[in-house]
Amino acid sequence: MEYQFIRDPLSGFRARLNDEHALIGRWLSEELAHERIVSLLTQLENLPNQKEELVLAGKEIRATFTPQEALFESHALFHESDDIAQYQEDALALDESGMMAVCGYEDFLPMLIEWAEFTTAK
Rank of each mutant, 00 (worst) to 15 (best):
E30V: 03
T64S: 13
A101L: 12
L92E: 11
L28D: 07
I24M: 13
F118M: 09
S29T: 11
D82Y: 05
W115C: 06
D8Q: 01
E31R: 13
S11T: 13
L32A: 01
P9F: 15
R26D: 02
S81D: 14
M100R: 15
L10V: 05
V55F: 05
A85W: 08
Q50Y: 07
E69M: 14
F5T: 04
A63P: 00
I24V: 13
R7G: 01
E52W: 05
E20G: 03
T66A: 04
N46G: 14
S29V: 01
E73Q: 14
E80M: 04
E89P: 00
P67V: 08
S97V: 06
H79I: 06
G58T: 02
R16D: 03
D107P: 05
E45W: 14
D107I: 07
A22D: 09
Q43R: 12
L23H: 01
D95E: 14
Q50S: 07
L94H: 08
L28Y: 10
E2D: 11
N46P: 04
S29L: 01
R62L: 03
S97M: 08
A121F: 06
G12T: 01
L71S: 09
I24Q: 05
I84Q: 14
L41Y: 11
E31I: 02
L40P: 00
L41I: 11
I61Y: 01
I113C: 05
L71Q: 12
D19S: 10
I84S: 13
S39H: 12
T120Y: 12
S97T: 12
L44K: 15
R14Q: 15
E60G: 00
F5W: 09
R14Y: 06
G58H: 09
G104D: 13
